[in-house]
Amino acid sequence: MYILNYDCITAAGDGVFKLMEALNSGRDCSKPGAPMGRICQIENLERSKETAQVSLKSY
């Protein structure tokens, strides 16, 4: 089968270019956030922030 197109949103940003830019430049996109360590969250997604807060409170 054949791959015609693709797109993604990751902690590196919106789009494949941002992902590859982070990988090629050696950028670790994690930030302090998880109770035990770091987390790679999607930016500008309100739910992510809420989730992180809930996650922290629940500990």
Partner: peptide, 8 residues
């Protein structure tokens, strides 16, 4: 380390 993503 945990991460979030969405892709198509």
């Amino acid at each position: 380390q945990l991460g979030e993503a969405a892709s198509m």
